[in-house]
Nucleic acid binder design. Sequence first.
DNA 1: CTGAAAGCGCTTACAG
DNA 2: CTGAAAGCGCTTACAG
Lengths: 337, 337
Amino acid sequence: MATIRELARLCGVSPATVSRVFNNPKVVNAKTREQVLRTARQIGYLPNESARTLATKKSFMVGLVWDTDHRRPGWRHPFFQEILIGLKTALSGRGYHLLMLATSGEPTEDAYVRAVRRHNLDGVVMIDSGTWDPSLRRLAESGIPCVSLDRPVQGPRVTYVTSDNVGGARLAVRHLHEQGRRAIATITGPAHTRPGAERLQGYQDELARLGLPYRPEFVVEGDFYLSGGHAAMRRLLEADDRPDAVFVAGDEMAVGALVAIGEAGLKVPEDIALVGFDDIEVAALVPPGLTTVAQDKDGFGIAAAEAVVSMINGADAPPPRILPATLVVRGSSTPPL
Amino acid sequence: MATIRELARLCGVSPATVSRVFNNPKVVNAKTREQVLRTARQIGYLPNESARTLATKKSFMVGLVWDTDHRRPGWRHPFFQEILIGLKTALSGRGYHLLMLATSGEPTEDAYVRAVRRHNLDGVVMIDSGTWDPSLRRLAESGIPCVSLDRPVQGPRVTYVTSDNVGGARLAVRHLHEQGRRAIATITGPAHTRPGAERLQGYQDELARLGLPYRPEFVVEGDFYLSGGHAAMRRLLEADDRPDAVFVAGDEMAVGALVAIGEAGLKVPEDIALVGFDDIEVAALVPPGLTTVAQDKDGFGIAAAEAVVSMINGADAPPPRILPATLVVRGSSTPPL
DNA sequence: CTGAAAGCGCTTACAG
DNA sequence: CTGAAAGCGCTTACAG
């Protein structure tokens, strides 16, 4: 591996000049600049990022906290995977790499903060896995630029990105009402997750606006996973009074609900209309097509990357970004009764 | 951020001694060692990894090449997500972090090699996304310790981890035969992917062993995704002679096939038995339960971590690891005819 | 068991 | 526009 000194010697200039060619090209004479660039290409010179980071205190690396282990399967949700790729792409377009932070069995409260400091990470993105342990709080309070997905957090240089969960849920309920449904139940996400709570809120709000009664027996909590949606739907079907529509707060759960309805000998949408949330790939493919509230998955990654990079560059924490959610109508809720 | 000098000063020793406390503790006097450790904790000293990497040429970071963009949706497959977490966990247990490599629109052949060298990465894991472009070949040939998932590659310090795809496919076909099925079709993965080709091979091998004829019209290529399985199944159903069983080379495709069969007014397993491959979460949940060939998802991550770390520590490239695949019997293939 | 010194490969005021 | 020098925070033979 060639170093900056060798390259400088080859070009008959000082290392300082070579450094300027890469970091501040306009200040160096055009001729020498070209020569340095050409020679660098010939000998395959690559700047050593560790040395740069040591000298500049900037690593151009962002940490990803995706708090996962085998007891917390939050990461299994396909929605996160779709966000991850968008985030990686958006960051790399801005010159940043993504380091997956692992606590390596070091279960102390400051595990993440320590990892971030040791590696000179410039910022952090955290994916809400439903848990919110002290190590995340410490990270948010540490002063490191921090963007959280789907969860508001307190901290000096922290912001978050989320979908308009309340508005999206309202869209879903309004749509079901427009289709002539009046007994509209909901299968919620876990109450302790932000999206879970907000989508329930939207359901309640829209019910109120429409003048429909709020019926506690029409609200069953799920877990965002297929099996939870299946179980929740069975509970709804066991009740004396059956709903004619269900707003399911996540597509995976909605597929589980679909299955449960089929097992009960009922049909979607004839007997029960269904609207999901997320618009994961399977929503379009499962018959009769799942009507759902789409989240802007690429938008998550882009907004998170923008926010963290702007804070890294010295800006104050930008306000939270609430991405619009849009209704995608498919067969599970149409035609009207 | 406290440095090693400050810590040394506080303890009345030299930086060299502090360094030894962290890197080679046994050579330093027990008393001073304890004092250094205690003081380090008090002032929150953390070694600067960039400086360490610069001095030692070891970064304790492994790159992940997951070659993805919006045209190549390889990453969307839920199977990869399950592997990723296992890999991260296994690596972090061995003291390594995972850096997601992005080419940031730098579409040169040596983009990955450059990224690896610039960041002093100790090794690399590559996930086969079906494409195999020159930049991956260059990486494999570069001399950097390299582990590939699901694809054999040539290179001085390279090995790979895969499932026993041939054996697994044979298990599936044999099982269908034991259930009394004789007209056994297959929906394959893309022919240019290794798992796709091998599972087809296993299908052919077992057919031959059982004395069943190989019928080209019973072989339809899919894409490993739900929609591809759906389309492939429709083609099988359009033919004059309908199969009574299908070995589908991936669970997502199998779910698509299940849907297509239902749409055609046929039933699984009564009319057509189905066996998938992978054992992703949905396999257990979709009615009537998908019989499938399970891959050892945690095993992938562990084997890859072991292999790359052993090469980093100077060992020769270990032989390829072929993980056993096991049959998981559910309702889609039972009871026997 | 310990310290002084040199070095890892860069960057960046400072002076010219 | 350019160079010499100092410094980023560590590690590691070497000498004692």
